[in-house]
């Protein structure tokens, strides 16, 4: 499964940032992320099979969307114990960047890298849609380049309802850890309309919307590209 680091030319960037995309059994958005970081942004990118244990060559870890381990027991609950996760936790503890998208967000909450949990959507439906989002704070590497506070990204999830106890929610709000909020109708019942959060040190982010699915202008609005560009 693992691919060698590709060294494509990077004409527009000053820095080479190496991306590592974790692949669990059941991940299905990994290649979309590779397309963004390698093909659109020209950064060295490799996929990392979940049985690997070494992330030392990687600057940014992406835990992609999908249905790791068939979503059995709880979304992300089993993936959290995959061998690679020890390295992902260590990577995060060193202050390096970790991005969890959709199922990746669920995995990061299960692993304790982000607070709260994602539970069944309020209305029971699996939602596949494009939704307006409010960029709550540009005071993070992930959101720094967003000049428009209102963006639009696709969502596709059955368990995207963000839940946390009131104290945790207060802390998230007070620390500016809520990075994305659903701007229109709350699609899934998430508390405080939360669509994406980061940890206290802001190096780990989890979001239910899919920035990688809105990154190529050929496919319409590309509001997700900035999030990846911000890292380079």
């Amino acid at each position: 499964m693992a691919q060698p680091l590709s060294q494509l030319p990077t004409p527009n960037s000053q820095l080479i940032v190496k991306f590592g995309i974790i692949v669990f059994p059941g991940s299905n958005c990994d290649r979309d992320v590779v397309y963004v970081t390698r093909d659109l942004l020209g950064q060295p990118t490799r996929t990392i099979w979940h049985e690997e244990t070494d992330l030392d060559d990687v600057d940014v870890v992406v835990v992609p969307g999908g249905f790791s381990y068939g979503d059995y027991l709880r979304c992300g609950a089993i993936a959290r114990f995959s061998p690679i996760m020890k390295a992902v936790v260590a990577h995060a503890k060193q202050g390096k960047y970790v991005l969890g998208i959709c199922n990746g967000f669920q995995v990061l909450t299960e692993a304790g890298l982000l607070p709260g949990a994602l539970v069944r959507n309020r209305d029971m439906h699996f939602i596949c849609d494009r939704v307006p989002l409010h960029v709550e704070s540009t005071d993070s590497i992930w959101t720094q380049g967003y000049n428009n506070t209102e963006i639009s990204l696709p969502i596709a999830h059955g368990e995207g309802c963000y839940h946390a106890d009131p104290e945790t929610l207060d802390r998230l709000e007070a620390n500016g850890q809520v990075l994305f909020r659903y701007a229109g109708t709350n699609p899934n019942g998430s508390l405080n309309n939360i669509a994406g959060i980061c940890n206290e040190t802001k190096n780990v982010i989890g979001m239910m919307p899919h920035p990688e699915r809105a990154a190529d202008p050929l496919l319409g609005r590309a509001d997700g590209l900035q999030l990846f560009k911000n890292l380079i």
Partner: peptide, 8 residues
């Protein structure tokens, strides 16, 4: 750690 998520 696995069977239940104490958060929920």
């Amino acid at each position: 750690q696995l069977f239940a998520n104490p958060v929920i």
